[in-house]
Computed example of a mutant assay.
Amino acid sequence: MEHETLFPLLCKTAEGNKDAFAKLYEITSSQLYAVALKLLKRPELADEATQDAYIKIWHNAGSYQRTKGTVLTWMVSIVRYRALDLMRYHNVRNEVELTDEAAAIPDAPQAFQLGGEQQKLAACLDELDGPQRQAIHLAYVNGLSHQEVVNYLSSPLGTIKSWIRRGLQSLQRCLSL
């Protein structure tokens, strides 16, 4: 789907094509909203983060670099950063509990119902060692900063950064197969 659908739509969006942008929104909005809601836990803030992300996507579509990841990954990172900004601004982090790692990774029956990309991501996450998976989960699912992951896992900052960096590299390799 990525290469056949999203990339051409993003290229047309970069040229100012509103119909392509509308189609891109139609295809990806539920996924981006889910990311924002997972981090923010409040629908009104998730709506705001998603809307702000699409404005940024519209204005920056031409800056997307295919070598740095998929279109959807690029879009998710935009909504994630916006959600993190809103978390800081509204101090949302104090209102939510950290999610249980096991609850965030689907079990086999759940994974069967997920789309192909989500199934592959779940399988790739399972291939990571425990500390890498946990650090990535805390940073990307719970939206913690590196320093907060350090405090939560009681490990040095350099170790946390290494786990996250190596884990993301492993995920990227696994997902590109």
Rank of each mutant, 00 (worst) to 15 (best):
D107K: 12
R93I: 03
N91K: 15
D85G: 05
V96H: 09
V96D: 06
V96W: 06
L114S: 06
R82P: 00
H90L: 00
E95K: 11
D100Q: 13
E97R: 14
L86R: 05
A102F: 00
R82C: 01
A102Q: 12
H90S: 12
A111L: 09
R88D: 12
R93A: 12
I105Q: 03
L114Y: 07
V96C: 05
H90V: 02
Q113M: 11
A103C: 14
F112S: 15
D85T: 01
D107M: 05
A104W: 03
N94K: 10
E101V: 03
D107S: 08
A104D: 07
A111E: 13
L98V: 06
D100H: 13
E95N: 08
Q110Y: 04
M87S: 04
Q113T: 10
N94H: 10
H90K: 09
L86C: 12
A104V: 02
A108V: 11
V96T: 11
A83R: 02
L86D: 11
P106K: 09
L86G: 15
L98F: 08
I105H: 09
P106H: 05
P109Q: 04
A102H: 09
V92W: 03
M87R: 10
A103N: 12
R88F: 04
R93Q: 14
Q113D: 14
R88E: 10
A108M: 12
N91F: 07
L84W: 02
V92L: 07
L84N: 03
A104E: 09
